[in-house]
Design a protein around this nucleic acid. Structure first.
Lengths: 223, 223, 223, 223
DNA sequence: GCTTAAACGAGACGGTACGTCATGTCTTTGA
DNA sequence: TCAAAGACATGACGTACCGTCTCGTTTAAGC
């Protein structure tokens, strides 16, 4: 888990990661998340982060390329801490190899997880930085790539894996593409959260599961 | 009627819209769309728009509150022009009351329209401003409200209406919520376009229609 | 004294002075003097004058070339009113042909008038516009010429005339240049008022008269 | 003991003068004087100074409060350089303790110095900034105080000292106030220079000395 | 008394400069 | 020897006025 040795930006001469001040790194993460939560991402500035972290601006520019990158790493770090804490609190939750619950009842499992996802999306500690990162991704394709790969995909892949598992168990049609199928559940939630195109609650996610699993077309009357 | 006589928010003293320069308005729209297309939204500045439009900055600040608002109106205007041009070019296209094709074959109609939607989303003239507006909406809830109401919803409502029509024709289950159903088709496209979580092509949209209409769950063997 | 028919600035086509609104002219004078007194000359703007006078900006630009010109005419008008009022209040004051008191005692007359001048210079209603006009004159040679000719010289000429009268009466050396002599009294007051190089009071002006009339050099002992 | 150990007025946080860029300071002085000389003070802008100096606007705002302050320091600096250059060129000029020539002949000394002063006032390199600073002093009393103290008084005090020296030598009446006496010579020059109330040449200054020293009143015939 | 042209109030317009803020780079200084 | 502190050049921000230019509305003159 230590620093990502390959991804050193290495303009000029690459700084020596071994000498990096852990205390500064943490202070910068805290300042970035704090400011984004308190005054919003657009009004959060690198100067502001440096000042609150008690750090020189150069210390930020040395290790990150933009405030978006700072925030992304701060957010990833926050998620890792939360995941560790959650794992510590609920040591025995039975999950499939996919990382999602796998009780055999696909509909129930999906409903459960989607409800939890919706709740997490609306947790204010997550919402502000997550929206900011999503916005940055819209404006900057390169940033978006990293954002999707490092933050979004790991979560989406859990669903894909769970669907593949269901497919192997014969609960899903064999000709289904799991990624497309995954989008039927996940994307509507994403869009309502990103754009506010409608209410985002448990009833909605339950409906999504029902409709996607069994289709919305009228069934021919079975005489 | 309606005019909105009451809704004058009137910061300072509201300018007199009757004296507004149409020539300046058009020049500002053109400059805004041009710059966003050429150098991208973040590097587009109000000063740059004013300079390219040959207009004083104050003329922009007099009528709009931010570059996002300028771009939204420019984009809406662009869409209206395109719609008018399209209507002029294809005067006799048979559409349902909903505004979407309604041949009676729901699956075919949806596939057709979704393919067209995907193509439009990837038209470079649309993509840059649309992504910029979506990004702005992520950062500013109030802006998002206007963005959704003025740009997104009119498009989404066409789908909702088409689905309701299908429901009345007995092609859709009667207990289906049309807005949730609409999201099954539309949101996956939106997310792939917004975040780049996967390829966005005709095969994908066709699959979405198939899966959503008939469900992805394995069917019990019909003996 | 009527309008100066030759000096019409006549950019574009000269406006018709006969149709000029007296009410607007007065309102502009009052607004200009009021604003200069209240917020100072630099923060007084043409827009501000127009707004306070309830007048369109163009009405100012039609008749004057700058805010300095407006203020100069307003100030001249104020002085004329004051002069009329003073003349009405003291109908029988005996003055020489020069306009200054001429009792035959040059020293006494000068002391009296210089004391009055100093008092007037320090009247707050006069001070603000007068200083502003003097400042404008420093920056703009052309304006200065008009300022001196229309405002300053008429006052200075009174002193010159009084000195010439004294010269004819044999009280002043015959070889004295009256304008240089006048400066000995007037310029020190002007400089202290303009630049604040020292206190400006009656004792000072009395001293000036003494020194200038009788010289500051030690007299050879008269045995 | 008494916070604010020195005179830290400290708007925001006072900048660290030790880190100040000497190169920028010099470039700003040169640009300010150059622009004032070329296009005049009113059309000289802080943006223009910054641009010509190759300096950010903020660097000006960091160290000065207005363009008038910039120009005053630039002008003081110019005078100091000139004084140094003059001292280097004429190393052995005999001057009194006052800094003005003191040959024992007061009239001759004054005439000499006043002629030089008049010449300097009309040197175009001095005239433009000096008039601008004087104008600014008229509009801003606080600025005037600094202008007088830092620029005007040092010059005037030379005259006062010379007169005091003459007084001690018995050439001036003992009851004369030297500052008032000084104004008899200096103020007329100042006013003619500031306001253009008359020609400013050597004949004029010679006359001033004569008149002031020996008085303008007719002398009683000495029988 | 009616017509007509100008001056008028209002204020939108293309501009310029303001003074502030944040950027990303570079330099100084103290631990 | 690093990192904090922060000065620097750059450039956009949003505001205030500039002087010009329409707009309709008085208003006074001349028919």
């Amino acid at each position: 888990m230590s620093a990502t040795p390959a991804s050193t930006p290495a303009k000029k001469t690459a700084p020596d990661a071994a000498r990096r001040s852990e205390r500064s790194r943490r202070a910068i993460y805290d300042a970035a998340l704090g400011l984004v939560g308190e005054i919003g991402y657009p009004r959060t500035t690198i100067e502001g982060i440096a000042a609150r972290a008690g750090v020189g601006k150069q210390t930020i520019y040395r290790w990150w390329g933009s405030k978006a990158e700072v925030l992304m790493e701060a957010f990833i770090d926050l998620n890792e801490q939360n995941a560790r804490a959650a794992a510590a609190n609920h040591p025995g939750v039975p999950v499939g190899a996919s990382g999602l619950p796998d009780t055999g009842d696909l509909a129930a499992d999906l409903k459960l997880v989607l409800r939890a996802t919706v709740d997490e999306l609306q947790d204010p500690r997550f919402e502000a930085p997550a929206r900011a990162l999503a916005a940055e991704g819209l404006a900057d394709r390169e940033f978006a790539e990293g954002f999707v790969r490092r933050l979004l995909m790991p979560g989406l892949d859990l669903y894909t894996a769970r669907l593949r598992s269901a497919q192997e168990a014969g609960q899903l049609r064999a000709d289904i593409d799991p990624e497309t199928a995954r989008d039927l559940f996940v994307s509507p939630i994403a869009q309502r959260w990103l754009q506010g195109t409608g209410p985002l609650d448990h009833a909605y996610t339950d409906r999504l599961v029902e409709y996607a699993l069994y289709g919305i077309a009228a069934r021919p009357a079975t005489p």
